[in-house]
Simulated assay, not measured.
Amino acid sequence: MSRARPAPEPESVEHKNGGLRLRARLRALYHGSSPVAVRFRLAVLIVDLAIVAFFIAAPLLRGEGLIFYIIDYVIAAILAADLAARASAYSNIRDWLRKPIVWMDLFILATLLFPFFFNLGFLRVLRLWTLIHSDFFWRTVGRRYDDTRVEDVIKALVSLVTFVFVATGFVYTSFMGRHDGISGYLDALYFTVTSLTTTGYGDITLPGDWGRIVSILIMLGGVTLFVRLGQTLLRPNKVRFPCDRCGLQVHDPDAVHCKACGQILCIPDEGA
């Protein structure tokens, strides 16, 4: 005869139920559409933007000593709590870990926690890019602009701004104190902007072959992002409306037939 399984301990059942309730609550806050969930996500976004502002200003604040590092670790605790909450709110943790944005956030957290990553602190500004490219942002403050031209323009602009500050941080970290032309963060920012716009006044140049390689990469990256932003601003307006037959995602706002397969479309007129 098989033995009956012992009944689960009341404390373990209560603990399990409590964990399920917590995950359900987090899922409702991070993915729900209730007023409480929207206010919660707005508060999270405000904190995120404040953290990004600190990351941008960090090179100017390092002289504050102990206070700077205390703020650093407080931000690390906030980001760790946010990542843990997002993971709990996600239905499948493996799918969540497959997202490149998640790994970028984990790397940013590592630069805050471990001293040997401090020289890579300029990469923390990538948090701005991950924030604007996340569904979390567009479901909260940009719902009416989600999958529209406005979203494309904002993403292109943020990519350019992020590149400017990441490149500035790299130049500042790599050449500050090693080259007379880079005597402060403003000099690094000035050099980055003049390089990526290909203005090249020549009053600040980076020394050696490594300096030339960095200058070339900044110019190529800046021109590419400028062209992308210009294309996004100037190209004809399109709307996202997948074709049922061929799957083409974007069409002209007044399109009647799919230009790829000829399928009849019925695109809603938001202005009507």
Rank of each mutant, 00 (worst) to 15 (best):
V102G: 01
A53R: 00
S12K: 04
L29N: 01
A58I: 04
A7L: 12
D48H: 12
A76R: 06
P35G: 05
P35K: 00
V102C: 09
I75A: 07
Y69N: 11
G18N: 13
P10Q: 14
V52L: 08
P8I: 09
M104L: 14
Y69M: 06
I56P: 00
L120F: 10
F68Q: 01
A87R: 07
A57W: 07
R23P: 03
S33V: 05
K99Y: 09
I75T: 08
F114K: 03
Y69E: 12
V74L: 14
E14W: 10
P10L: 14
F107V: 04
F116H: 09
R3E: 15
L120A: 11
K16L: 15
W96V: 02
I101Q: 10
A4Q: 10
G65A: 05
A28N: 12
K99R: 14
P10C: 06
D82A: 12
I71K: 02
D72H: 10
L120N: 00
V13K: 14
R39C: 03
R5V: 14
L60I: 03
E64L: 14
T111Y: 07
A85H: 01
I56K: 01
E9P: 03
A76M: 10
M1F: 13
L49R: 00
A28T: 03
A77Q: 07
A53I: 07
A53Y: 02
A77I: 11
S88W: 09
A58K: 03
L61P: 04
G32N: 06
D72T: 12
I78Q: 04
L60K: 08
H31Q: 09
P100S: 07
T111A: 01
T111E: 05
I51M: 13
L49I: 08
A50G: 10
E64G: 01
W103M: 08
I78H: 02
N119R: 10
L45Y: 04
L20I: 14
V44G: 00
A77H: 07
R62Q: 15
V102L: 11
E14G: 09
L106Q: 06
V52A: 03
F122A: 10
L60A: 11
K99D: 15
A81H: 00
R21G: 01
S91R: 06
S91V: 08
I71Q: 04
R98D: 15
I51S: 08
Y30M: 02
R23A: 15
A57H: 03
L106D: 00
I71N: 02
W96E: 11
L22F: 13
A7T: 10
V74K: 06
L66H: 08
P8H: 02
F68H: 08
A4P: 00
A50R: 07
V102D: 02
L120V: 04
